[in-house]
């Protein structure tokens, strides 16, 4: 059971990472959100993207050890990148929950940061 959970976690993180990295490019953000990508949004999205992508390594390694993780992680990345590219070209709105989350996060951070 936990094997499946770890696999789902790895796949989710890899997809989130790829989607975030793709959205940190102005053209893709514009296609999904309909507004230009601001500097804060870009910084948050890109950093979160790298973080999620590398975090996906962890469940891979816990599940099967480093020998398998070294294969599963790049291939999960490949599948995620393909799915992200396809959703961007056919159904960009599918990625809107992710941009919505980052915009709220950006607003929250702005509210927190002292002037």
């Amino acid at each position: 059971m936990s094997e499946w959970l770890l696999l789902v976690a790895a796949a989710f993180l890899a997809f989130l990472g790829c989607a975030s990295l793709a959205l940190s490019l102005p053209r893709n953000w514009l296609a999904v959100v309909g507004e230009p990508l601001g500097a804060t949004d870009m910084a948050i999205t890109r950093r979160a993207g790298w973080l999620a992508l590398f975090a996906a390594l962890l469940p891979c390694a816990i599940r099967d050890g480093p020998g398998f993780a070294a294969l599963a992680w790049p291939l999960l990345f490949a599948l995620s990148a393909f799915l992200v590219a396809m959703s961007l070209s056919y159904r960009a709105v599918l990625l809107r929950p992710i941009t919505g989350f980052y915009r709220r996060l950006a607003r929250f951070l702005r509210a927190c940061s002292p002037r």
Partner: peptide
């Protein structure tokens, strides 16, 4: 970096084929 997520099927056939090759 951009090619990781770029596929433009609605563009001309040749551009779409190249996008697909790169992707």
């Amino acid at each position: 970096f951009q090619e990781f997520f770029t596929f433009r099927p609605k563009k001309r056939a040749r551009r779409a084929v190249l996008d697909f090759h790169n992707l």
